[in-house]
Amino acid sequence: MRTMNPAIEAVIPALRRYARALLGSAQDADDLVHDSVILALANVKPQMPHDAVRPWLFTIMRHRFISDRRKAKFRHTVPLDDAALGGDAPMFRVSAHQESGLRIHDLSAGLASLPDEMREVLLLVTLENFTYAEVAAMLDVPLGTVMSRLSRARDRLGALMDGATPPLLRRIK
């Protein structure tokens, strides 16, 4: 069983990145990763193909996240703040040549205000570079649902970042 440990360990940094973006709080994120990896180790199959490990781990973490949400372990929305992103972490330094005009604070706050199901799709695609089909399989939803969530997440986040539209007015549910 433990032969899978290196493959699992290799994914931990990505799990942390995703969880940090998903939850905002570094502590909550690391707790989620920790619990997820323990669950993974308890359920690992030694014959699992190595390229299946990453989506499998993200799926486990997603289930754990939903379960935690149900238990109201996390606040409904967690505003990202400097502390949540690790205080003086260099990630705040957006280089001057970056012409996106996006301010990190807006990005973080905007991300936090997205509904979970939009945020997870956006992050799985953009940060983790999963294929749409992989995301659909992980979420157990049709491909079309993934695409519509991705589209709404991008439009909504874009609107939030522009400050053009108050978030609640953009909520189409």
Binding site: A21, G86, A89, P90, M91, V94, S95, Q98, T126, L127
Partner: peptide, 12 residues
Amino acid sequence: QTNALRATFDPV
């Protein structure tokens, strides 16, 4: 937007 997300969270 994608670049900004990566710039923010890739350092993790």
